[in-house]
C-alpha cells in the first residue's frame, strides 16, 4: 500500500514541479545564450540589453519560485491532503497512518533534492562562461579523487555518511513542519497561527537540545584551542556519525509525534 501512496503522491506533485523545472531549464538556456553573445555597444541602450535584463529577471523570479514552491507544496500536501477535506478520503483508505506520513515525507525529500540539483546545475550552466560542463564535472571528479587519496578507504564511508546526514537533515526539516501542523490542528481555532507557533516552539526546543549536546560534545581535549586539529578519518567518521544519530533521533521523535496525533487525535473539520 505504501507503493500505491507513493505513486499517487508523485502524480499529485509532479504535475506542479515538472513544468517549473522545464521552464527553468528553458530560461537557463536562453540566459546563457544571451550572455554568450558579445555586447553590441556598452553605452548604447540596445534591444539586446533590454532582452538580457528581462530574461535575467524572469530567471531570478523562477529561481525564487522554485524554492518557494518546494516549500509550499511540502506544506500544502500535508495540510490539505491529510487534514483538509481530502483527509476524509485519505484516512478511510485501508492504509496505516504512518504510511501516509512516510509517503509524503519521501516525495517531499525527492522534490527538495531534485530542486536543489536543478538549481545547482542551472546556476553552474549560467555562470560557466569560461568553463564547459564536462570540464566542471571533471573538476569535481578530481576533487573527489584527492579526497579519496587523503582519507583512503574511509572516503567511501564518509561520502555515504554525508549523504545520509544530508537526507536526514532534510527529513528533519520537513518532519518538524509536519509535527507543527499536526499540533496546530489540535486547536479549535486559529489552526494556522497555532501551527506557526508550534513550529517556533519545536525549533526552539531542538535548538536548546542541540546547543546543550554540542557544548558537552565539544568540551573535549581535541577541541581545546591550541591543540592542532588534524581531521583523521576516524574523527570525521565519528563526527558525522554523531550528526546522523542526532538527526535520526529528531526525525524519529517528530515522526512519532505526528503519527500519534494523526492516529489518536485526528479531528477533521
Amino acid at each position: 500500500m505504501l507503493g500505491k501512496l507513493l505513486k499517487y503522491e508523485i502524480k499529485a506533485t509532479a504535475r506542479l514541479f515538472l513544468p517549473l523545472y522545464l521552464t527553468l531549464i528553458i530560461f537557463t538556456v536562453i540566459n546563457s545564450f544571451l550572455l554568450f553573445i558579445p555586447n553590441a555597444g556598452e553605452n548604447s541602450f540596445s534591444f539586446y540589453g533590454f532582452l538580457t535584463t528581462i530574461s535575467m529577471i524572469i530567471y531570478v523570479t523562477l529561481m525564487i519560485g522554485l524554492v518557494a514552491m518546494t516549500l509550499i507544496v511540502m506544506i500544502q500536501r500535508f495540510y490539505k491532503n491529510l487534514l483538509g477535506d481530502e483527509g476524509y478520503l485519505m484516512f478511510t483508505l485501508p492504509v496505516k497512518s504512518w504510511n501516509h506520513i512516510l509517503s509524503k515525507l519521501t516525495i517531499s525529500i525527492l522534490w527538495t533534492v531534485t530542486s536543489g540539483i536543478v538549481a545547482f546545475f542551472s546556476i553552474m550552466f549560467i555562470s560557466s562562461k569560461n568553463i564547459s560542463i564536462p570540464e566542471l564535472l571533471n573538476m569535481f571528479s578530481r576533487a573527489f579523487d584527492s579526497f579519496i587519496q587523503y582519507f583512503g578507504a574511509s572516503a567511501y564511508l564518509i561520502s555515504l555518511e554525508f549523504i545520509v546526514l544530508g537526507l536526514l537533515s532534510i527529513a528533519s526539516t520537513i518532519l518538524v513542519i509536519y509535527a507543527a501542523i499536526s499540533l496546530g490542528h489540535l486547536f479549535n481555532k486559529y489552526k494556522l497561527l497555532a501551527s506557526f507557533g508550534m513550529y517556533i516552539a519545536l525549533q526552539t526546543v531542538s535548538q536548546i537540545i542541540m546547543s546543550l549536546s554540542a557544548a558537552i560534545f565539544f568540551n573535549q581535549d581535541i577541541f581545546r584551542p591550541g591543540t592542532p586539529f588534524i581531521p583523521s578519518a576516524t574523527l570525521v567518521t565519528g563526527i558525522l556519525l554523531i550528526g546522523i544519530l542526532y538527526y535520526g533521533v529528531f526525525c524519529a521523535g517528530y515522526f512519532a509525534l505526528t503519527n500519534y496525533i494523526l492516529k489518536r487525535k485526528l479531528n477533521l473539520e
Binding site: 481530502e86 478520503l89 492504509v95
Partner: peptide, 20 residues
C-alpha cells in the same frame, strides 16, 4: 482500523475528491 476500512464504504457529508 485497516481491517474495518477494507469492508466499510463511507460517504462523508462533504466533498473529499482531489480536484486536480
Amino acid at each position: 482500523g485497516i481491517e474495518t476500512k477494507r469492508i466499510v464504504s463511507y460517504l462523508p457529508e462533504r466533498t473529499y475528491l482531489n480536484d486536480w
